[in-house]
Computed example of a mutant assay.
Amino acid sequence: MLGIGATATLAAWTDQENAKATLTAGTFALESLVSGGSWTDTTAPAAAAVLPLAATGMMPGTSKAAWIQIRTKAGSGAGTVNLTGVTLATTPADPTVDPNKSFSDALTVRIGTVATTGDCVPSWTGGSLATKVGTLPTGLTPATVGANSTLVAIYCVVVTLPTNAANAAQGGSVTPTWAFTGTSS
């Protein structure tokens, strides 16, 4: 006979297994190339790639074209890229007459993607048109850039001084900087 208050104890054995993983974030970074240059990261506006437009001494009816290739850096994921901004810098002018503003207001810009760099010529009519050099063209669609420097986007930029440019544009100077922004996919 068992006494009151006695308890029975059963033994239970346990074992445990564990799993761990190291998680790291991927990267998304772009680089660009212009004719005569090398692949460069031009994130800072001060380090902007210089488009070889050869657009000095423009006369009414003149168009100049240049291309910029944009791709992801090695080790980067895929994504898209699109023109998202334009800023203008002008050289100082005579305050009584501002040929820089007249010149800037007269210039038109056509921007879009092309299949090859050879397709980017002054007579190119693709892409989207901005009626002033300092405005974004409407209707641009993002271009795809592949992971690890594959699938390069080639943008063509055509700048035109129309035949009806104002006489006040003579001697004007402007430096546009176009910003292309990438987004990871």
Rank of each mutant, 00 (worst) to 15 (best):
M59V: 15
G146T: 13
A165N: 08
T116W: 03
G57M: 04
G3T: 14
T150L: 12
W124P: 00
T96W: 10
C120D: 08
A6M: 14
L161G: 05
G112Y: 03
D94S: 13
T90A: 12
A21P: 01
A179W: 00
G139A: 05
P52G: 15
T40G: 02
A6G: 08
T135Q: 10
W39P: 04
N164H: 05
T181V: 08
G36F: 13
S76E: 07
S38G: 15
L53K: 05
L33I: 09
G36K: 09
S104W: 00
L136S: 10
A25F: 01
S185T: 09
V50D: 14
V159K: 06
Q170D: 09
S123K: 04
N148T: 11
S185F: 00
A49K: 10
D94W: 05
L140C: 04
T150M: 04
S185G: 10
V109R: 13
L151N: 15
T175R: 09
R110N: 09
A19N: 06
D41A: 15
G139T: 09
G57V: 05
R71P: 04
V86L: 06
G57N: 15
T183Y: 01
V86T: 14
R71A: 13
A169H: 03
V86A: 06
A44R: 08
A78D: 13
V109W: 00
K20G: 15
T144W: 02
G57R: 05
A166E: 12
K101I: 12
T56Y: 05
V109M: 14
Y155W: 15
A166S: 13
V121C: 01
P137H: 07
G171F: 11
W13A: 14
S35F: 03
T22F: 04
L161R: 06
G126L: 08
T108D: 09
G127I: 13
A19P: 01
P92G: 11
P176M: 02
A6F: 08
A66G: 14
I70Q: 08
T42H: 08
G77V: 15
T116I: 05
A12P: 01
V157N: 11
W13Q: 15
V121H: 00
V152Q: 14
T84I: 03
V34S: 05
G37P: 12
V114F: 06
T91P: 01
T80P: 08
L88R: 03
G182D: 02
G172C: 00
T131G: 11
G171V: 10
G77Q: 12
L10A: 13
T144L: 12
S35W: 00
R71N: 04
A106M: 04
A147D: 09
V97P: 00
A12S: 13
D94A: 12
S38Q: 14
S149F: 01
G126I: 08
A153F: 10
W124T: 01
T56P: 05
L30Y: 06
T62E: 06
T14C: 02
A25V: 13
T125D: 11
T84P: 06
G118R: 12
A115N: 14
G127N: 06
T135S: 13
T175H: 02
N148L: 07
T177R: 02
M1E: 13
M1F: 10
E17V: 14
Q16T: 15
G134E: 07
T87H: 02
A179D: 01
A168F: 02
G134F: 02
A47F: 03
G172I: 05
A106V: 03
A166T: 11
T175D: 13
T80K: 14
G37V: 10
